[in-house]
């Protein structure tokens, strides 16, 4: 066995690897990005909790050497809210997929954002339900194929970042697994925000989404991410016709607003004194 890097040794459960993801899956890049960010920020691993729902992405916490909780489908943020409020000293990170976070878990997503509770949510968006074999999700583009959209998807997509911003998230960013370093920086900034943070990591699923929609192999899908995305700052300087149809990546929101647990603790401090 090849010698693992210090990053892997320090942050992963070596006896749980290799992971279950398919060859060419983008999820490992985002998972590594989370580990890089945690290590760079020097967090005490005893105080880090990583919580997930159900699906391919949600298997990530099992490989990561922290306090880890693999919950029910869509409910990671609701479990995480309980953990964080019960012990605000914990650094709580939620890992979720596009279906887990925005379909079955959509209600929890908008309400966690509304509360501005200090949880960092990383969405591994591969535009498909991978674990169940390629059904269309709320981020499968209109017209694309899935096993439950055999004639093309008639649904429309969620823009996860705009949804999160509208719901009150105080840090919102989008990156891709092609732009790995930039994504890692987004995760780092999200972790440092005291409030609800969301990073949409655009991933690739060559096995289901890619094959079904003739997107080529993993390498081609990665190149496609490069070709179809534009950084927010770059896009701002381009004429509209050069921006149209491109997926914008970068930081969309980074602001300060009172955090839920801190606000609740003000109530505790006030009323405990009175009695």
């Amino acid at each position: 066995m090849a010698v693992a890097s210090k990053l892997i040794e320090n942050n992963f459960r070596m006896n749980r690897l290799p992971h279950i993801w398919c060859p060419g899956c983008g999820h490992g890049i985002i998972m590594r990005g989370i580990a890089e960010a945690i290590e760079k920020l020097g967090y005490d691993k005893q105080k880090v909790c990583i919580i997930s729902g159900i699906g391919c992405s949600s298997r990530a916490p099992g490989y990561m050497d922290f306090n880890t909780l693999h919950t029910t489908h869509g409910r990671a943020l609701a479990f995480a809210t309980g953990v964080k409020l019960a012990n605000p000293d914990l650094k709580v990170i939620v890992i979720s997929g596009d279906g887990d976070a925005t379909a079955i878990g959509g209600n929890h997503l908008i309400h966690a954002a509304r509360r501005n509770i200090d949880i960092t949510t990383i969405i591994f968006n591969n535009n498909i339900y991978g674990m169940t074999g390629g059904q269309y999700s709320p981020t499968t583009p209109h017209g694309e194929l899935g096993t439950t959209a055999p004639y093309g998807n008639v649904d429309n997509v969620f823009d996860i970042c705009r949804l999160a911003e509208g719901a009150g998230a105080t840090y919102v960013a989008r990156g891709t697994v092609y732009h790995a370093k930039q994504l890692e920086k987004n995760i780092e900034n999200a972790l440092e925000n005291k409030g609800f943070s969301i990073v949409e990591g655009i991933s690739i699923c060559p096995t289901y989404y890619g094959r079904k929609n003739r997107k080529g192999d993993a390498a081609e899908m990665m190149m496609n991410l490069k070709d179809t995305t534009l950084d927010k700052k770059v896009a701002a300087k381009l004429p509209p016709e050069k921006v149209e149809g491109k997926l914008i990546i970068g930081e969309f929101v980074n602001k300060t607003y009172p955090e839920f647990c801190e606000e609740y603790h003000k109530v505790v401090d006030k009323f405990m004194k009175e009695d």
Binding site: T71, R75, A80, T81, G82, A86
Partner: peptide
């Protein structure tokens, strides 16, 4: 700590989260 969650499912989930903490 008390929290009113967004739905019944979340109420149960957060209760479990609180116990785990």
């Amino acid at each position: 700590k008390f929290i009113q969650m967004e739905d019944e499912i979340a109420g149960m989930a957060a209760t479990i989260g609180g116990a785990l903490a």
